[in-house]
């Protein structure tokens, strides 16, 4: 599904991602952990194709195609979707209007998804304007459910969300990633940034990666990695010489 090879990314004059290799196959969910400022969000933004950063070396391939220089909307159309940790407020643009534009042949499903996420009362509200932390994340997940991407990137889906909303969001994300589908038939893949690991209760992630200072310091079982981080912090990862 996604193959990243020898990726180097600069922001301004500073290289913030170095020598990144990552392969995510169809049906897999990967978890990305790491201290604040280690480059996790930058990696997601580079995969989505946002401006403000520059890929100086390496390639990003999606579904077998090199998308390294492709515009954002074409990547989205190919099947990449992203849940933003802090999405911008688009004042004036109603959530319902955006969903009407993006839903295409899934227009009939918008109401059902909105009810599922308790967002049916938000259709006439400007996107993210005055939304609480939980409402922002529910709005993000709703947009992704309407978009139905094949590869879902989730940037801290549980941050700023209360426990009740985490259950709701966790279940919705599990639907997005086809966790209810037998592993053999599962097509959707994901890359999830988490600090707390709460979201893993809903996702059954397959692989975990730790990023520090723009490089991967560990790959392995996500729950094992999380246990080490919770016990010893990231210093254990920094000291680790496995990779």
């Amino acid at each position: 599904m996604l193959e990243i090879e020898d990726l180097h990314v600069k922001i301004g004059d500073r290289e913030v991602l170095h020598d990144i290799d990552l392969t995510i196959r169809e049906g897999e969910t990967h978890v990305l952990m790491g201290p604040n400022g280690s480059g996790k969000t930058t990696l997601l933004r580079a995969i989505m194709g946002f401006s403000g950063l520059e890929v100086t070396k390496g390639t990003i391939r999606f579904k077998g195609k090199d998308i390294t220089g492709m515009p954002i909307h074409e990547r989205a159309k190919m099947g990449i979707g992203m849940l933003f940790q802090r999405p911008p407020t688009v004042s004036g643009l109603k959530l319902g209007k955006l969903l009407a534009v993006t839903s295409g042949d899934r227009a009939g499903m918008v109401s059902e998804y909105a009810r599922f996420l308790h967002m049916d009362g938000f259709m006439d509200r400007a996107i993210n304007l005055g939304f609480s932390g939980g409402e922002i994340k529910r709005s993000e997940v709703l947009q992704l459910m309407v978009q139905q991407p094949d590869f879902v990137m989730l940037d801290e889906p549980e941050s700023g969300v209360d426990l009740e909303n985490i259950t709701l969001i966790g279940n919705a994300i599990a639907r997005l990633l086809e966790k209810d589908v037998h592993i053999v038939n599962r097509k959707k893949s994901g890359l999830v940034i988490t600090h707390t690991g709460y979201i893993l209760d809903y996702l059954d992630a397959d692989f975990g990666h730790v990023m520090c200072d723009g490089v991967f310091r560990c790959h392995g079982n996500p729950r094992e990695i999380l246990k080490v981080i919770k016990t010893s912090g990231y210093k254990e990862c920094l000291a680790c010489q496995k990779i």
């Binding site: 989505m48 946002f50 401006s51 515009p71 954002i72 909307h73 989205a76 159309k77 979707g81 992203m82 933003f84 999405p87 911008p88 688009v90 004042s91 004036g92 643009l93 109603k94 209007k97 955006l98 534009v101 993006t102 400007a126 947009q143 978009q147």
Partner: peptide
């Protein structure tokens, strides 16, 4: 770019934001 990440090309994303801006 937020709207582009939902699949709208740059022109449509821009027009959608402008329309929302005027939508008082």
């Amino acid at each position: 770019e937020y709207l582009m990440s939902r699949g709208l090309d740059e022109d449509v994303a821009t027009a959608t934001i402008i329309r929302g801006f005027l939508d008082v």
